[in-house]
Structures are given as structure tokens and as C-alpha cells.
């Protein structure tokens, strides 16, 4: 298992190099640093000197890939690619446009993101699975059909509607919780309850239907008939047998997103004013702070690949037949 993991981590390296090259091409080749400077400083009234100064302040005044002026290793290291892109492999993201250290910013903003995303994920998992099991229990009846119809209706509603509508009803009409904001420690509960509830409600339609499909596939299998023939109650069949056997498809879809929870949710965080990584990203997009966006793209893919590895490990836990070699 250990050797498998080591190999998987080595496999991840070429993919991360690919991501790195892709972001480098997107951010430095499609548009030159000169273009960036002009956009940041305003297109019309901008002098060449101002552009040079802007580039120098941010270290964009170096050659892209190969510095022929430098000597020795400097030929490669004293370039934009080395200092801005390759350095992300050691999680050195450099500085944002307002001069803050991006790595430190990410560290402090991870906790608020997690405070929303982790409970949303856990509560959501329980709610969706029980909703889907309920529909499976009553499969073929009017209750099941109503449930599916409800799912289709709910998944046709825009995610923005849940946030805007929920915020309006709960915070503005009923004054139950503050509209937006965040506080550390226990005070944070009143700020995070609504975003979590909306996050869970927002994907109940698509998730409920997805889990129902998985369970229905399992219910049709022979072992379920055997379990019923033994005289087990339907509830016992569902929870002890179907749920356990449906774990592999469920884990495939679920474990991947666990590391990504650190990144938070763009929409929820910006609507509720949570100072997490999601709102950090949105602010960076709106102020065209490219170094932050670049860092988040790289961080996102690292976490995604970590999720894939976690998925493989989780298989061995729920299914003893799976052995990682």
C-alpha cells in the first residue's frame, strides 16, 4: 500500500507540471506582462515608464523562459517562469497586487472556508443519502414519483436563487441570523448556520436523484433477493446490505471533493461575506489580480489530485476485495 501511494504521488507530478505549464501559458504567453500592466494602469493614459515600473515592482521585467543575460544557473532561475510559475511547486505563491503574501493569506483564510464547507458536506451527505434511501424504500409508489419530480424541480432552480431567496427570507424578513459577516470561535455559529442550510438545500435535487439511481441499481441485484428470502426486513436490507454495497460508487463521487472543501465556495462566501478562500478568489477575479488566481488554480489541482488518491485509499477501507499494489 505504501509503495502504491508513493507511486501515485509520483504519477501526480507530471500532471501538476502540465497544470503549471498551462497556467503559465494562459497568464504570460496569451497576454504579455506589458498587456497586464496596461490593463492594470488603465489603457489610455499610460506611459512606457509607468509600465516598466509596474513590471519591476512585481518582478515581471524578466525574460519569460531563458535569461541569456544572466550566467550559470541564473539563465533558468532568473526568469518569470522559474520565479512565478515553477516556485508554486514548493507552495511559494509570491505576493498579491496589494503586496500581501499569498501563502499566508491562504493559511488564514482556510479556516473560515472550512467552517462552512465541512458541515455543509457532512450534513448534506446524511440528508441526501437518507432522502434517497427513503425514495428507494418506497420505490414505484406515488411517494417515490413525487420525490423524483421534486428533485427535478429543485435541480432546475438556479443556485443563485437559493442563496438570494434564503438570505432574504431568513435574514431580512424573519431576522433570525445576521445577513452576512463572520466571527471566530463559537460566535461564528450564527453566521454559518444559514450558509450551511442553503448549501445543503441547494443541491438536494441533483444529489438526491444521483444517490437514488445508485441505490436502485443495487436493489435490483441478486444478493438483495437473497437477503429478502432470508426474511430480513426491507429496512434492514436497505441499511445493512444495499447501503454497504453502494459505498463504492458513492465514494467515487464523494471523496474527491473532500480536499477541495478547503477552497470553499465562491458564491456562498461572497454572498455571506465569509473571509474564506472562495471570496478571496472572487475578489481577485474582480480586481484582476492574476497572481492570486494563478495560485488558486494550482492549489485547486493539487487538492483535486489529493482527492483522487484519497478515493483509492477509501476503496480499501470499505471493500476488502480491493488491494492497492
Amino acid at each position: 500500500m505504501i509503495s502504491y501511494l508513493v507511486r501515485r504521488i509520483f504519477y501526480a507530478i507530471p500532471i501538476l507540471i502540465g497544470v503549471n505549464l498551462l497556467t503559465f501559458a494562459l497568464f504570460f504567453v496569451v497576454n504579455t506582462p506589458d498587456d497586464m500592466a496596461r490593463i492594470q494602469l488603465g489603457i489610455k493614459r499610460v506611459t512606457p515608464e509607468a509600465i516598466e515600473k509596474w513590471k519591476q515592482q512585481r518582478g515581471y521585467d524578466k525574460p519569460l523562459l531563458l535569461n541569456s543575460a544572466a550566467s550559470g544557473a541564473g539563465k533558468i532561475t532568473d526568469t518569470i517562469f522559474w520565479q512565478k510559475s515553477a516556485s508554486m511547486f514548493v507552495f511559494d505563491f509570491g505576493y498579491s497586487d496589494d503586496g500581501r503574501n499569498i501563502s499566508r493569506e491562504i493559511q488564514t483564510r482556510m479556516m473560515p472556508s472550512l467552517a462552512i464547507a465541512l458541515p455543509t458536506f457532512l450534513v448534506g451527505l446524511v440528508v441526501y443519502v437518507s432522502f434517497a434511501l427513503l425514495m428507494t424504500l418506497f420505490r414505484g409508489t406515488a411517494l417515490d414519483i413525487t420525490g423524483v419530480a421534486l428533485c427535478v424541480l429543485l435541480m432546475s432552480v438556479s443556485g443563485l436563487f437559493y442563496i438570494i431567496g434564503g438570505q432574504f427570507m431568513v435574514s431580512k424578513l424573519w431576522h433570525l441570523v445576521p445577513i452576512s459577516g463572520y466571527a471566530g470561535g463559537l460566535d461564528s455559529i450564527k453566521f454559518v448556520v444559514l450558509p450551511i442550510a442553503i448549501g445543503v438545500a441547494g443541491s438536494i435535487g441533483s444529489s438526491g436523484r444521483w444517490y437514488r439511481t445508485i441505490f436502485l441499481e443495487e436493489v435490483g441485484k441478486d444478493y438483495v433477493r437473497t437477503a429478502r428470502a432470508k426474511g430480513l426486513s426491507e429496512l434492514r436490507v436497505l441499511f445493512r446490505h444495499v447501503l454497504k454495497n453502494a459505498m463504492i460508487p458513492i465514494l467515487t463521487g464523494v471523496v474527491v471533493v473532500i480536499p477541495l472543501l478547503f477552497m470553499g465556495s465562491l458564491l456562498t462566501e461572497s454572498f455571506f461575506g465569509i473571509p474564506g478562500l472562495g471570496s478571496y478568489t472572487i475578489d481577485a477575479i474582480n480586481s484582476q489580480d492574476f497572481s492570486v488566481v494563478r495560485a488558486m488554480v494550482f492549489l485547486g489541482s493539487v487538492l483535486y489530485i489529493a482527492g483522487l488518491i484519497l478515493t483509492d485509499i477509501s476503496y480499501t477501507i470499505v471493500d476488502p476485495r480491493v488491494r492497492l499494489q
Partner: peptide, 27 residues
């Protein structure tokens, strides 16, 4: 190729690409 592309969270990849496209169009 598709593992590289799908390993980037899609919103971020779209955001990065659209930001760059905006710069090209503005220039």
C-alpha cells in the same frame, strides 16, 4: 491531457481563461 484539464476546478479554469480573453479583447 484530459487529466490535466479536469484536475483544475472548472470555475477557476474558466475564470482564468475568461480573464485572459478579456485582456485580449480590451487590448
Amino acid at each position: 491531457v484530459y487529466t490535466v484539464l479536469s484536475s483544475i476546478p472548472s470555475v477557476l479554469l474558466i475564470a482564468a481563461a475568461v480573464l485572459m480573453m478579456q485582456v485580449v479583447i480590451e487590448m
